[in-house]
Every structure is written in C-alpha cells, then in structure tokens.
C-alpha cells in the first residue's frame, strides 16, 4: 500500500467492486478555480487522513446547474440536473459531501424534484462530524490557538439551509477566538456573488457588495476571515485586495484551516 494522497474516482471504485461511503462533489470552482483548488486538495487530504472510503466523479462531474437556474434558465438547469442524476444513480451514490454551498443546496433541495435523492452534507457539517467522532484531533497549542478569526456566512448555507452552527463548531475546535461580524448568521450580509452574480459585473451602484462585507470583516480586527463557500472565498479575497490588506489578512476555507492545523 502506497502512502501518497489519493482521490479515487467512482469509476475506479466500481471497477474494483467497492462501494465508497461518500462521494466528494468537487464542484466547478473546486475543479477549475486556481485559488480554490487548494481547498479541494485540503479537503481530500483530510479525507485521506481520516481514512474514509470516498470517491470523486473526476471528469464525469458537471455543473449542478445552479447558476443557470438562479439566472432564470430553468431548461439548462434541468438538463444539467438530469444528466448529473443519471450519473449519480448509475453509481448508486447515497451520501454526498461538498464544500460548495451552492452545489449543496441544489443537490440536496432541488434534485429530489427531478428524482435525485441523496443524503447531502456540507463539508462544514462533515468536518464537525469528524471532530465530534474524534477522527480529527486538533493539535495541542496549534498555530491558530487564541488567534482572532471571523466567519462569513454563505447565504446558501446559512439562510438558505439554516446551517449556522457547524462552521462555528469547526472554528471552536481549533481553539480560536471567534469574533462575529455585526451582521452574522441569519442576518449575515451576502458576499455579492449569489444568484449567478459571480458570473457578471454588478449593476450600477455606490459600492461593491464584497467591499461592504470586507469592511465589516476587517472591523472585527480578525486576521483570518473564514469562509465555507468558493464564491465567498473569491469575493472576500478580492475585497481584501481592494482594501490593500492582503499582507495582513487571510481568507481561508474551513478545510484549509483544519488541514493547516493537522499539517497536511
């Protein structure tokens, strides 16, 4: 048995007659976004470390259809959804983990209407589960201990699905000082990328939404802004650049925080 990290595909698992416990749905940002690919790798390393039997779809994965749907193109969404459901059902997938709240929301809430029924968890929930089960044990006096951190709620995880506690539980496990922004949890301010805004320029206004949100995050005094969404990661990172704070303030995904703590 080799001791390198692995990201087996469903096709490989099936060929070897294995039924993986979970499917890691990587998402388009997780596959293509230069910065966000690091989150995919961090999460895969965590999955490797805890030794869970997982698989990915590899190049059989395609867009869930979420951005098309929120922009009004129901046809395109349903075309995507139905072909994804065919693939997922073909592999008899039962449980899906994804780091993208948009993929999470769509597969969990919207695929059932088209016949796709899976247990879908966001990686923050899965990480919380691993921590609670003692499968991830944080380092004593790890590098984050006592440091200020703020968490930016993703709308599609928070308000859309009422997941507020799981990401916070992950941060607390790191023994960091969580400082909430004024608008947080159900009152959290969007990063500006939801509803397919990620894929176009904003309308005329007085300010960009991500700048407004970044200013609020900076007011907490935290040097780490944690996120649980690829679009939020992009928007907050851009906001930090806009404020010329990129040397002092990091924007990190929850999986990256855990992977760093575990020195993966």
């Amino acid at each position: 048995m080799s001791d390198t990290y692995k990201a087996p595909t469903m096709a490989q698992k099936m060929a070897s007659g294995e039924a993986p416990e979970i499917l890691f749905w990587v998402g388009c940002a997780g596959s293509f976004d230069e910065r966000y690919k690091a989150v995919t790798l961090a999460f895969v390393k965590i999955l490797n470390k805890v030794g869970v039997n997982f698989a990915v779809l590899g190049d059989e994965e395609t867009c869930t259809g979420d951005p098309a749907r929120r922009a009004g193109n129901e046809f395109l969404y349903q075309m995507q959804a139905m072909s994804n459901i065919q693939v997922l059902d073909g592999y008899q997938v039962k449980r899906i983990v994804t780091a993208c709240p948009h993929c999470f929301n769509t597969i969990k809430n919207e695929y059932p209407a088209l016949g796709g029924n899976y247990e879908v968890v966001h990686h923050s929930q899965y990480l919380q589960e691993l921590i609670n089960d003692g499968k991830i044990v944080m380092k004593e006096g790890g590098e984050f201990k006592g440091k200020k951190i703020t968490f930016h709620d993703s709308c599609f995880l928070g308000r859309a699905n009422d997941v507020y506690e799981a990401p916070r539980a992950v941060i607390k496990a790191l023994d960091m000082e969580l400082v909430e922004m004024k608008r947080c949890k159900s009152k959290g301010l969007c990063c500006g990328a939801g509803g397919a805004q990620m894929f176009k320029e904003p309308e005329q206004g007085s300010k960009d939404i991500n700048v407004e949100r970044t200013e609020e995050a900076l007011q907490t005094g935290a040097k780490t802004i944690a996120v649980g969404c690829p679009f939020c990661l992009t928007m907050m990172t851009d906001g930090i650049k806009n404020k010329e704070k990129e040397k002092e303030v990091n924007v990190l995904d929850l999986a990256e925080l855990i992977a760093k703590d575990q020195q993966l």
Binding site: D3, V44, N48, K49
Partner: peptide
C-alpha cells in the same frame, strides 16, 4: 471539460500524512 480532474494530477506525488496507515 477534460481538464476538470487536473486538480488531482499532482496529488499522488505528495506523501500522505495518514495517521491511520
């Protein structure tokens, strides 16, 4: 679409710190 899985290309070059193995 063929580049979708490229993120994993270098994964098996890194030594795993799998505590279980």
């Amino acid at each position: 679409p063929t580049d979708r899985f490229n993120w994993a290309a270098d994964l098996n070059k890194e030594k795993s710190k799998n505590s279980i193995l």
